[in-house]
Amino acid sequence: MSKEKHNPMAYAIHVRDLSKFYVVSQQETGTKAAFQNLVHRRKTEVRAVDGISFDIEPGEIVGFLGPNGAGKTTTLKMLSGLLHPTSGELSVLGYVPSKREAVFLRQITLVMGQRNQLVWDIPAELTFELNQVIYRIPRDSYRSMVTELTELLDLGSLLKKPVRNLSLGERMKCEIAAALLHRPGVVFLDEPTIGLDVTMQQRIRTFIAEYNQRSGATVLLTSHYMADVAALCKRVLVIHHGKLLFDGELSGLLQQFTSHKTIIIQLDNCKANLSNYGEVKSYEDGRYTLRVPKAETARVTERLLAELPVIDLLVEEPPIEEVIARVFAQEEK
C-alpha cells in the first residue's frame, strides 16, 4: 500500500473514514399515531455514508457505482461542499470543501442530472455570460471555451434558444457546457446521462472522455448506466449502504466478484454430453454454453480441446450488469 505513504495533498481528492449520518423522524400513519407524533417523534439514524476512504489522482476518471440510496450523491455533495460530513477527513485540491471558499468553488463543478442551473425562460447563452462574470473568466478564455464546447458538444444554435424550448438531451448538453466554462480542475458528474436516449448518452460520454484528455481534469462520475462507466472509467468505486465494497480497476471488479466464467464451444456437427465439463446453460446447432468455476476454466478448456472435435471456443466474463447486481444482492443477504 504505497499510496498510504503519499502526501494527501498530492491527490486531487483525498477521503478518509468519511461518514454522513442523518437523523430522520419516522411518521406512522393513522390518527392515533398522528397525535402520538405530536408529543414524541420516533427518530432513527440513517447512515447515508458510513466510513469510506479513497484517493483520486489528478487527471483520473473514476466511476462511482451503486444502487439508488447507496450514498453516491451524498458523497458527491460532501466533496463539492454542499453537505457537511458527520465525521472523517476530506480534501479536494487541498481544500476543505465544507468551507466553501471562493477559490475552491472556482476550481470545481458539480453537474446534477436532475437539477438545473440554466435559467428556464431565457437562452442558455445568457446564463453562460452570467457565469463568465461569476467565475471571473477572462474574455478570451471564455470565448475560446465557448467555441470549444460548442464544437465538442455540437451546441450550434442551441445557445440562442430559450432553455424551455430545448429537448432533455439538448438541455443536458447546455447544462454540462455551462458547468465547464470556468475550466474546473475537478468535475463531479451525478447521473449526467439520466433519461437520455442511447445516442445522446454516447455523445455525452465521448465528450467527457475528450474533456478529460484535453484539460487533464479529474472526473468523478456516478451513473446508473454501466455503459457510461465501462466506456469512461478504468477505475470504479462500488458503494452500497454507505460502505465502499470495491475500489479498483473495472476488470478487477469482475475478477473479484465473479466465481464463474462462460465457455462457448462449437462442436463439429455432433452431440455430446458435456455435463461432466461444467453446467450446460444452452445448446443450439452444436453450439454449447457452459458455466464453469473460474479456477477451473483453464483445465476445462484444455480437456474440451483435447477430448472433443472443437471448431471454435470462446471464454467470456459474465456481463458487468450481472456481476454488479450479484454483488449488491449478496450484500442484501
Partner: peptide, 12 residues
C-alpha cells in the same frame, strides 16, 4: 426544492 444548492456551488 434544493435550488439553493446550485447557488451555493457558485463562488459568489
Amino acid at each position: 426544492e434544493g435550488v439553493l444548492s446550485v447557488a451555493l456551488l457558485k463562488p459568489v
